[in-house]
Design a binder for these strands. Structure first.
Lengths: 244, 244
DNA sequence: GCGGCTTTTTGTTCTGGCGCAAACTTCTCG
DNA sequence: CGAGAAGTTTGCGCCAGAACAAAAAGCCGC
């Protein structure tokens, strides 16, 4: 229906790239230049692993453009999606939490542009650049809090509420305003959503269909738009009648 | 059956108290003395809140003796137990993850002795004491990893496996060797266990009864002893036939 | 030793949502 | 443009485990 999406272009390594990113925002141009000179930049297609769980943590990364999905795979092969990382965040920062291997796999949820540094530079960055460590730990703290919330949700809520919650989190973190409402800014399948909410793609599909009938969401293949966020909030609080 | 437990005695504030604790283990006696002089020490009865979710994070703490349970309470009043903290760990370190309020409630799971410092000293400790920050973040990282594991478990495992997992975690972190096996070192009810595993106390009770018949655990009121840890590992891997 | 409380056990019923199966729709690529 | 692949929808039976209920056991203070 639309023209083929243009391939994301490789950016020139320019100070303006990193200046808006919180971990670097307090730095001088000269310092950012230094940091960039040490980085390598790469473009990834959608659905490609940047690193895998258990591998030695040799590099840490910053996502310049696109979305990253952090997931784990159980011994029996099931996938569980832990979180999505929006552009502008560091990831793969195993060193920051005292690990020498990556604790999870990260896969591109869309085409992505990624900056990478050798892990040995981590301590140097922490020591050398003001605000780098504290901003990073703010991010770690946010992720910790988010995971905590998910545990509470999974322990206390029904499937419908959990899925509604996940949708809300997604549009908050990765939503893009479109005419019809707020669209999740990367391709996402029913299967993906089920792996974020500990359910099956069948149940997610039924829920989305029901919500679509009620005008809460609009969806097509691999795309979901929330048209009535407020209603979704009611659903995730359990204040709306079950949609089945 | 036994004589009433003697009340935990308030320790003298002595360097030997902090020397073995990882965040402080690299410090000189003089530095530890400084740190102790800034601390206040308190004894808590079992089941008392040290701080509550949402309260301004005015102090951070180190657990000298006993156990702390970190939990959250949902709007509908259900409790979810996030983790247990063994003695020797810092807790309430909101500042470390960039927060100004406590993200969860912490309650003593047993009688406990706790050291506390005003939060404004946090940055000072980080700046002044070598290894303090990195050891702390190792702890944060461990908790992050543990929570991640729990999410994966909750998403992919059956109740029986989750309860087995929780028991194993508990005896690993807070187990005490006794004649019959390894006992969880603080009072714990079926209800508590159900709040850690997202199930009901009824189901936990049935499981423990079944395991007791199989000689895997021994339990009495508020006490659980694992008599066959290896069997429990099989159960949590799903390699043993369901116990019901 | 007794009354009241908390914790644990056990039985029974009921249902959310999973498992399985099959058809349908939408994209992609030659 | 047609074939195949990938993603989605829908129907139906079933069961793990929640909900409800009630009794039993253990503990505490007086």
């Amino acid at each position: 229906m639309s023209a083929p999406t243009p391939r994301k272009t490789m950016p020139r390594l320019d100070e303006s790239l990193l200046t808006p990113m919180p971990p670097f925002s307090r730095l001088e141009k000269r310092q950012i230049r230094e940091i960039l000179d040490l980085a390598s930049v790469r473009r990834f297609d959608e659905g490609v692993a940047v690193f895998e769980e258990g591998a030695p943590a040799e590099r840490f990364y910053m996502l310049l453009d696109g979305y990253i999905r952090v997931m784990r795979i159980t011994p029996t092969g099931e996938q569980v999606i832990a979180l999505h990382i929006p552009s502008g965040q560091l990831f793969g920062i195993a060193q920051a939490i005292g690990r020498t291997t990556y604790p999870a796999t990260s896969v591109t949820a869309s085409e992505a542009i990624v900056l990478g540094w050798p892990m040995r530079l981590w301590d140097q960055f922490v020591a050398q650049y003001d605000g780098f460590a504290s901003e990073t730990y703010k991010t770690v703290g946010q992720r910790l809090g988010e995971m905590n919330n998910r545990i509470v949700e999974m322990a206390t809520q029904q499937v419908e509420q959990r899925v509604a919650n996940s949708l809300l989190r997604l549009i908050n973190q990765t939503g893009r305003k479109v005419e019809a409402g707020i669209e999740i800014d990367f391709p996402i399948t029913r299967q993906d959503l089920s792996e974020m909410t500990a359910t099956t793609l069948h149940t997610v599909s039924r829920l989305l269909s029901a919500w679509e009938k009620q005008g809460v969401v609009a969806s097509r293949r691999k795309r979901i738009t929330v048209t009535d966020p407020h209603r979704l909030v009611l659903i995730c609080r359990g204040e709306a009648p079950p949609s089945r």
